[in-house]
């Protein structure tokens, strides 16, 4: 009889730290995948991340790498500067949908259009989580939020923005994929996508963008398990999973 450990807490996850995320939040899964990749690539001492504004604003307490806290939405602009000064460092931004698709729309489009050699991880949960569940640009039609209590009306608020499709219309981005963390099988694919994003950056292939469909059990008013079911039933048909651009 012998025992082999096949899974343990990642080394780059801060020791003895409890995250402030609600139970069942997709942020925790995305953080864990990033930690696992940092461990696998052995890049803990040369990775710099831009922490966003939003629920993940305190991610510098959880992943043991270097950070710059960017103003709301400006993470791709800050990352551009850092990557140009330190081209040998691994630079990634981690942004939510309120941060990236709303106030930071200009920064992300121009960073993508310049083809900056950075990795952008975009967490889409279709709502503003930290501020209390307001409507985001990615909120689905008919989905209720505190600023659209009767459901999003396209006559008033337009249609949800599909960021992957929008950025895929540009010439320069080298890799764009949408993944989910709703089930273990999707999470494994999400890890592969993130790995590709980091590898392209190390190979100096240019801008990579990975959208991760997440959940917000608290503001959706569902249990963690039900919220991932809701995501697969409602979000995935509108935000189809898959690769939108890959230079290979």
């Amino acid at each position: 009889m012998s025992e082999t450990k096949i899974y343990s807490r990642p080394e780059s996850w801060m020791k003895e730290v409890h995250t402030h995320y609600c139970p069942g939040c997709g942020h925790g899964i995305a953080h864990r995948l990033i930690c696992e990749l940092i461990d696998e690539f052995g890049i803990q001492d040369k990775t710099i991340s831009m922490a966003p504004v939003g629920c993940a604003a305190m991610m510098y307490d959880y992943i043991d790498i270097d950070y710059v806290e960017a103003p709301h939405g400006r993470a791709p602009a800050v990352a551009t500067g850092i990557k140009r000064v330190y081209p040998e460092k691994i630079v990634f931004t981690y942004q939510g949908d309120g941060d990236l698709a709303s106030i930071g729309m200009a920064e992300i489009i121009h960073a993508a259009n310049r083809g900056e050699n950075i990795t952008v991880i975009f967490i889409n949960n279709a709502i503003y989580g930290m501020t209390g569940g307001q409507m985001a640009p990615t909120t689905l039609i008919g989905q209720k939020a505190t600023t659209c209590p009767l459901g999003r009306d396209p006559q008033l608020a337009g249609y949800p923005i599909r960021m992957c499709e929008l950025l895929a219309s540009l010439e320069t981005p080298s890799y764009i994929e949408r993944v989910s963390v709703a089930r273990p099988k999707y999470t494994i694919k999400a890890k592969e996508a993130l790995k590709k994003g980091f590898r392209y950056q190390m190979d100096k292939k240019g801008f990579s963008f990975i959208e991760v469909l997440s959940s917000c059990p608290t503001n959706w008013g569902l249990t963690p398990i039900k919220s991932f079911e809701w995501q697969l039933e409602n979000m995935v048909p509108y935000y189809p999973l898959g690769i939108f651009k890959d230079f290979e």
């Binding site: 450990k5 096949i6 899974y7 343990s8 807490r9 990642p10 996850w13 409890h18 995250t19 995320y21 139970p23 069942g24 939040c25 997709g26 942020h27 925790g28 899964i29 953080h31 864990r32 930690c35 089930r183 273990p184 999470t187 494994i188």
Partner: peptide, 10 residues
């Protein structure tokens, strides 16, 4: 793989 808090060792 599904744990958001990395609380499980296998």
């Amino acid at each position: 793989i599904s744990c958001p808090d990395a609380a499980i060792e296998v």
